[in-house]
């Protein structure tokens, strides 16, 4: 048997430095991965771990006590109430806006889309401030509202308005590109078959965007429950009355009730983790039906 030496060498694996032209050397690759992961560990995972560590440092009993404190319970209830009002409001708006923008051609459309995104570029503090300027005691409307006993500033309606403002674009900006991508063909077909506008919307449009809609609702809800700046400005921090969970965390923290503050914070952190899990599951499962509203 003759063994051609060159052939024999060819059976060996190629030398290490020979790699496809579009990858880096393993050392470079692992260094970059290590840098990236270390950065995430320090900036994301450590704070997250700190929340749960600090929350449970005083023991499980103290944790349970902090959460079941009447003020904490009131804050949880208020937070759920705020989300329960503001998310459906923005849902209806998102559907209407997406229907108008995605299914019709009209002048000023791109301006409208820009305006819908506007709340994202406004500081949360300003989002709260504008309602104080509009409805506060020093405003034009203020005295009139006071005479009629309508409380907006330092009351639940103000908190709801501020929350709606900061979560305003979430559902619309998820639905608009999704519905634009799907075009108008199916709706036109349904109408040509005799369906009414509502029937078309319910039976044709809505099923096509349901996962994207859910995705938008998820993000909207997370922000609604967690909003701090805007709500802080307008709430007046009245314990048990206008305190949402994030505000309650702040009050406890400023009173040096650290364990209690972190206990309530841990609930919000769990909500964040749950949101991430559901969001990721939606992205993996229904990637085609979601135009990931990334960036906010």
């Amino acid at each position: 048997m003759v063994l051609d030496p060159s052939l024999q060498a060819g059976r060996d694996r190629p030398r290490k430095h020979l790699r496809a032209a579009t990858t880096e050397a393993p050392a470079v690759r692992w260094t970059l991965i290590a840098i990236g992961l270390l950065f995430l560990a320090v900036f994301l995972l450590l704070p997250l771990a700190a929340v749960f560590y600090e929350a449970l440092r005083g023991g499980v009993a103290a944790y349970a006590e902090a959460i079941t404190d009447p003020d904490a319970m009131a804050a949880i209830r208020l937070t759920l109430l705020i989300a329960a009002i503001s998310v459906p409001c923005n849902l209806v708006f998102g559907l209407a806006a997406a229907w108008a923008v995605a299914k019709f051609e009209f002048k000023g459309k791109s301006l409208l889309v820009t305006l819908i995104d506007l709340p994202f570029s406004v500081s949360p503090v300003i989002s709260g401030l504008v309602y104080i300027l509009l409805f506060g005691s020093q405003s034009l409307l203020g005295p009139w509202l006071a005479r009629h006993g309508i409380g907006i500033v330092f009351a639940v309606p103000g908190i709801v308005l501020a929350t709606i403002f900061v979560t305003f674009p979430f559902i619309a900006r998820e639905l608009i590109p999704l519905m634009q991508e799907q075009g108008t063909g199916e709706e036109e077909a349904a109408i040509s078959l005799g369906a009414s506008g509502w029937k078309t919307f319910l039976l044709v449009t809505l099923p096509n965007v349901k996962w994207g809609l859910l995705y938008g609702v998820l993000l909207c809800n997370a922000r609604a429950m967690g909003e701090f700046g805007a709500v802080s400005v307008i709430s007046g921090h009245i314990r048990g009355v206008t305190n949402t969970m994030p505000l309650h965390v702040e009050i406890l923290y400023n009173e040096y009730a650290f364990s209690a503050a972190f206990a309530v914070a841990s609930l919000l952190a769990l909500l964040a983790l749950l949101t991430l899990v559901l969001k990721t599951a939606l992205e993996w499962r229904f990637a085609d039906n979601i135009v990931a509203a990334r960036g906010h």
């Binding site: 060159s6 052939l7 060498a9 060819g10 059976r11 190629p14 030398r15 430095h17 020979l18 790699r19 496809a20 032209a21």
Partner: peptide, 23 residues
Amino acid sequence: AGLEFPSAGRIHFGDEDASEKSV
């Protein structure tokens, strides 16, 4: 071209063994 590398075998350019050369 050398954009990929073979699992086995050799490539010669003239008298030169190009198998071990990068792209």
